[in-house]
Amino acid sequence: MTGRPAAGVAGAALLLLLGSGCISTVRYGVENVTDLAKVGDPEKTVIEKHGAPDEIMPVSKARYIYVYRIVSGSVMLDVVYGRDSFQNLSYMVDGGQITGVGLVDEGSGTRLLRAGITPHPKARDGHGGDARPAHSIVDGLGRWIFGD
């Protein structure tokens, strides 16, 4: 295949590439997840090290949790390959002092060629499961693959 046919194929490939998107890489959420405040530090240390939290979760009275949420994701050719992964960083504060620190991975997903995928438990009925695993799988267009 030479000349015009080759150029046509190359052009079609380019259009496909542009039409379906190419590469994106993101990481949103607090960037400092190495220099953490310590148990016993005053509450203000959390702000000094990590800035504004994404959420403050009340526990009781003067006890609450500062939460920072992080997502990393990348996509290649839109529908061909995608991945994401989650972390959260949290501080328990009691009476103005840090009483607990946690940095945990919170799951990840990959996807190849619009494969079926499964929601995080918090996005599912019943949270920890919905009794029928097949019902939790959706296709690339967001439709339930199995279900009512």
Partner: peptide, 11 residues
């Protein structure tokens, strides 16, 4: 949705 993931690794 659910903060820790929304069932779509492509974003």
């Amino acid at each position: 949705g659910g903060h820790g993931g929304d069932d779509d690794p492509t974003g």
